[in-house]
Nucleic acid binder design. Structure first.
Lengths: 241, 241
DNA sequence: TACCAACCTTGACCCAGATCAATTCCTCGC
DNA sequence: GCGAGGAATTGATCTGGGTCAAGGTTGGTA
């Protein structure tokens, strides 16, 4: 590993994953063009339809992936069926649990999702020879940790109203930036999923959405299409300082 | 960084932090003896008494530390004072938020605590030149992330009874292993802290402890000293499959 | 050995959110 | 356009855990 000579990054070669024919998110930006080409040979694109679970809780994981499009929910389930969504992954997030053979949660497509899959071994080899890649994944993990801890505050200490407003704020800030306008977005989750994310019931989520609507903080069309006239007001309703 | 020659690990030199005169936890095991000696020059030992906050929320962080003894609680506070403990750090955990200049939470000693402090820059320099160190901190971060997500399930979906039992299980499994027996331990947190960790009130924590006591699942002496006759029964009460 | 202050427990009551039970609303196939 | 079936809303009622209010313990101090 010490003796490995890394190919210099060449600006001539496109830094895209060939098999995906799409620019990857974070992972690829730490790789040289040569490494990317090599990785491309082992990677493949997959489409996963909404509601499809593609990694089960307790399952062994032999591949990692980049999310190219869509939203993936990560959840933990108790023996009696109680469920908690512990994280959402948006494009262009990298998904994988380096070092853990067994997944301790399930991954399911919330919306129709496209991912680029590479074998676990390929990433681990690259990580061993490219400190920049490990650094990138490390900082991603720390950000996810920070997000998870923010959500713990939401779960443990906020009221139903604040939880729902927090969720809407989260989606507003992670929503498709192509639309340009952060104040109009589609909800990627059903009411049932929102409830599982917030530690509430479907009925409570629905009631709080109605309440926010009647207070003029949000507008809802066709269940999923949300408009927020004033994002600051929503943030205030979420209890954010 | 590519050209840096790392000193070989020498078995003759003790891999301990000189100024601490104590063996470090994870961080130091990835360093060579020479690096450890160098790090020792910049590190110092500190004692922090229970209840002392040593990193404030929003404060800028210029040093990292190893916990040598004691328990540290990490917490987030809302503008109106509602508080959530988002993690506990036990010896010999490494504490620090590489890459984040600003701490987004507070760190406070739960019990009397001894830490070994080094400047942020020193660790960052070492991390840049030692991939093993980054790898170690990366895997620690992933484990903390997994723990945080497990706790999200506890916060979002468990009953008060299950939450308290989950907390006791956690302490039993992280408690001082010198005692040998995992079924007898001192609680490192007050009832108020336990409540903040579980998203409950003091009164509810107290009532659930009494209930567990009356059911014979635990014994309590002097508020803090706990005996668990049957750890499996406690785990079952915590809702763990 | 007595006092004080912080911490913990217990009781009575209340309310936010859960549960149970209908409707009503979308979406999609035909 | 029509109907079927899942998804969402709304209403009525219940309850787990919060709130408010006393006491009881414990440990430190003199």
């Amino acid at each position: 590993m010490d003796t490995l000579t890394r190919a210099p990054r060449s600006p001539d070669l496109p830094t895209v994953c060939r098999s995906c024919e799409a620019r990857h998110g974070g992972v690829c930006s730490a790789l040289t063009a040569a490494q990317l080409m090599e990785l491309s040979k082992h990677s493949s694109r997959r489409t996963i339809y909404a509601g499809n679970e593609f990694i089960g809780q307790g399952e062994s994981v032999s591949s990692y992936s980049n999310i190219l499009k869509g939203v993936v929910k990560l959840s933990k389930v108790m023996a009696d069926g109680r469920q908690q969504i512990v994280g959402l992954q948006f494009a262009p997030d990298f998904m994988g649990r380096p070092f853990f053979e067994q997944s301790r949660m399930a991954a399911e497509a919330a919306t129709d999702t496209e991912i680029c899959v590479f074998p676990r071994r390929a990433i681990e080899r690259l990580m061993a020879e490219t400190p920049e890649l490990e650094h990138l994944l490390h900082s991603q993990a720390l950000e996810e940790l920070e997000d998870a801890r923010d959500w713990m505050l939401t779960l443990g200490r906020k009221t139903a109203q604040e939880k729902v407003a927090s969720f809407l704020s989260l989606i507003a800030s992670h929503g498709d930036p192509e639309a340009g306008d952060r104040s109009v977005f589609e909800l990627p989750l059903s009411r049932a999923d929102i409830a599982d994310f917030l530690g509430l019931t479907i009925e409570t989520v629905s009631r709080q959405m109605t309440k926010l609507r009647k207070e003029g903080i949000i507008q809802i069309e066709n269940n999923r299409h949300v408009t927020v006239p004033d994002l600051a007001r929503l943030a205030a309703a979420a209890g954010n300082d």
